[in-house]
Amino acid sequence: MQLTEIRIAGFGGQGVILSAMVLGKAASIFEKGYATVTQNFGPEARGGACSAQLIISDTPVAYPYVTQPDIMVVMSQEAYNRFAPELKDGGTLIVEQDLVRVTGLDKKKEIKVYGIPATRIAESLGKKMVLNSVMVGFFTALTGLLDPDAVRKAVADSVPSNFRELNLQAFDKGFECGSTASPNTVETELEAESVTEAG
């Protein structure tokens, strides 16, 4: 668990902050690492753009902010446009593929892009609200950064008890998608879909 900088961004209501809290809790409480979460505070957090910064490390975290994220999770186009240029060379970009069109990424940076229709999956499970747990599951499988059991425990520990089962199902579904996902297939899928919709 070497020092890893992660940014999670989207709009208010998608569970952006909770996703960061779950991953941070998994790293620092259910595994023996360190994690620091900071979040943007301000009027923009209400219904608009929302972003959390998470640093995970096997040694104590001093500087609490992300400077060049190794991993970025974006769940809105606005968040993508604003934050994607920050990504480190060779970094990992995870997008809500129905909500984010990945454009203008610098090929030379060799960024690995993964997409998942997290909102649609959450809706198929019965509640759109659990899209963040889908994302967290997807993240966990793709990055291999954290022990899946630790993250699962953190999910269970962080959500209201009456939604625990549903969130765990969402986590498992996301994890399953992440286990079989291959990078850099998003753009093509997006384009194909928009053509179908237009037709």
């Binding site: 809290m21 941070g24 409480i29 620091t36 900071t38 505070f41 609490p64």
Partner: peptide, 10 residues
Amino acid sequence: DEVVGHMTEK
């Protein structure tokens, strides 16, 4: 300060 107040850690 605001950062320490709003920062989450173990």
